[in-house]
């Protein structure tokens, strides 16, 4: 199977405050079938930036062989990405990791719970789940200008937007509105949010997607580990890039920082 490719930038546009959506084209897109996996992107020319940036897959169009990623400009790497123009080539390693399990999920009422740039992978996931399930999206952002993809999620099911400052949607945290009568949840966002979500939905089966600074992105360097909750677990840890980034909510420790 293909593991890497120079993909062509078709589109790269701001969709919210400091937030960009990039569309990449190439054969590699055919292998991006599992929601929740990530792409490991090379930044800049040569070896000036020695670390790739992991970015989750936000959407894939198999017919057009395109993939969308959404990123927030926070450092030099993402700044470089934001300056990419249509026609530019970006080297992509991936798709990497284990994504959200969706097989045999049917006739369930499912929460998609996202925070900030944790929202994107939930969209590709939601598109797949909405075919056979009822989906409710609960999306938290810092402020009105940071909100994106609201209409897209509305096409999948009921969508609630929350902002920290109340400038759009409901004021507050995603956990303020969560109810535990759901069958299943999938969540991606900051660690603090994930921790609060897993506690609030303690009795509901769920999956969380974790983020961490990565070295290799393929499981060889031990940069991206997290602890497991089970004291009898054979290894005691998981590699986020290889065993994850998605884990059953109860498998990993979310409160270490």
């Amino acid at each position: 199977m293909m593991k890497e490719q120079w993909m062509e930038v078709l589109n790269n546009r701001p969709i919210a405050l400091d937030t960009y959506e990039m569309t990449l084209h190439g054969k590699l897109a055919s292998s991006m079938t599992q929601p929740g996996q990530f792409l490991h992107l090379k930044i800049g020319d040569g070896f000036r930036h020695v670390l790739r940036r992991p970015l989750s897959i936000a959407d894939v169009d198999q017919e057009d062989q395109t993939v969308k990623i959404i990123y927030k400009v926070i450092g030099e790497g993402t700044k470089w990405l934001s300056q990419a123009k249509p026609g530019n080539q970006i080297h992509v390693l991936g798709p990497r990791g284990h994504g959200f399990p969706v097989e045999n999920v049917a006739d369930q009422h499912i929460y998609l719970i996202g925070g900030g740039v944790g929202v994107p992978p939930l969209y590709y996931l939601g598109k797949q789940l909405a075919e056979n399930n009822r989906v409710t999206a609960v999306l938290g952002f810092q402020t009105k200008d940071a909100v994106f993809y609201e209409e897209k999620f509305q096409e999948l099911g009921e969508t609630m937007i929350l902002t920290d400052d109340g400038s759009y949607g409901k004021r507050g945290l995603v956990t303020d509105v969560l109810e535990s009568k759901m069958d299943l949840y999938y969540s991606c966002g900051p660690l603090g949010m994930l921790h609060a979500v897993t506690r609030k939905l303690n009795d509901v089966k769920g999956y969380v997607s974790l983020e961490e600074r990565m070295g290799c992105g393929i499981g060889a360097c031990f940069a991206c580990v997290c602890k497991t909750t089970d004291p009898n677990d054979e290894r005691g840890y998981r590699k986020i890039c290889k065993d994850g980034p998605v884990f059953p909510a109860k498998e990993v420790v979310l409160w270490q920082i």
Binding site: V50, G215, C224, G236, Y237
Partner: peptide, 25 residues
Amino acid sequence: EARYGNPTPRVAETPSGMLNAIGLQ
């Protein structure tokens, strides 16, 4: 013996380089 290593973040990029503190996991 087995070692878990250091807390994360364990890596950071620098100009033409990187820092790591895996901690011999």
